[in-house]
Design a protein around this nucleic acid. Structure first.
Length: 118
DNA sequence: CGGCTGACGACCT
DNA sequence: GAGGTCGCCAGCC
């Protein structure tokens, strides 16, 4: 996908030469109404073990980014940091796309909505 | 350099 | 299912 550009992505506190770009490029391929996991993104990048860094990279995204970070949940379909402001925003964005999140922060029908998990 | 911090995940009890 | 531990590794100080 397109490389990192300040005019496109805005000022990001961390501007990695490659890792962030790869994460964002991968996440941008997730269609509306579907979800994926940090682990899946990490695996797509070639290293299953960097799931944590994937989340960390998404946390560096500026507001208004075109990267659909809210479609990324953890391996059990749960919204990370449930209870936080970010989590509330994530749930709102997901529900806007028809993805329901239960009271415990879990995506309803996760297995079916999971991208690639059909 | 070394130490610290995490939108995680696998594993164990 | 719930709680704790450990490994993971990019980026920052």
């Amino acid at each position: 996908m397109s490389p990192y550009r300040p005019e496109r992505h805005g000022p990001v506190r961390v501007v990695g030469p490659g890792f962030h770009e790869k994460v964002w490029a991968c996440v941008r391929r997730v269609p509306a109404g579907a979800v994926t996991t940090y682990g899946d993104v990490a695996a797509a990048l070639g290293r299953r073990s960097v799931a944590r860094q994937v989340g960390w990279a998404l946390s560096a995204l500026p507001d208004g980014s075109e990267v659909p970070w809210w479609r990324v949940v953890d391996g059990r379909g749960g919204v990370s940091r449930w209870g936080s402001a970010v989590a509330r925003r994530q749930r709102a964005l997901l529900q806007k796309e028809g993805v329901r999140v239960d009271a415990r922060g879990r995506v309803v029908g996760f297995a079916l909505l999971r991208w690639g998990g059909g």
